[in-house]
Amino acid sequence: MAVASIAHGSAHGDGADQLYVETRELRLQGFLLFLVSDCVLFSSFIFAYLYLRNSGQGWPPPGIKRLDVAFAAWNSVLLFGSGATMHYALENWKHGNFMKYMWMLIFTIILGAGFLGGQAYEYTHLIVAEHVSWWGSGIFGASFFTLTGMHGFHVFVGVCYLTVLLLQSAAGVYTGQKYFGITAGTLYWHFVDVIWVVLFSIFYLI
């Protein structure tokens, strides 16, 4: 019961008034529903990719090499690791360990940025060395760059958001009772991670 250990007294105490508690419920539910619809967006593109992949041209299509699994595995571990650090950032916040929270958040941002760097490296390699492009490489380029690019954009947004969280936390915007921004950031970051589990398996492992 992590929550109980910091929320002393009733929900009315310490500035977490009834209005905040109820509004937080609404925002939480709204945010989860937003993630659901975002998930549908990814699912649609994943469906498109699998549909095109099975349309009889073989995979990878002629003229295109397999993706580099070793590098992707390493890069994925960076992102998965950032999921774990983010989880502990929220845990530490709930337990009131502010400095540990800040360090975990910083680790998360570094790992997320590292993943983006790895993806940039992979893109460059594909485009420069293997002449694979978004528009000129048939359904491979279309599905790979669209899906991973969309995911990369989500990671980028996440890194920006976590940086804002870091600054806000340093400025004392969040309190022991009112920290929905941190919860939402954690939910979003986990979501981005989990999408990558799916993308990693369908692009690199099958």
Binding site: V36, S37, D38, V40, L41, S43, S44, F45, A48, L52, W134, W135, G136, G138, I139, G141, A142, F145, T146
Partner: peptide, 23 residues
């Protein structure tokens, strides 16, 4: 839920028409 699926289809159509990405 359903509208988001349409958004994906439309985005793909847009990318195909404007950037020539083959879907």
């Amino acid at each position: 839920i359903a509208t988001t699926a349409l958004a994906a289809a439309l985005a793909a159509l847009f990318m195909e028409r404007v950037f020539g990405v083959p879907f």
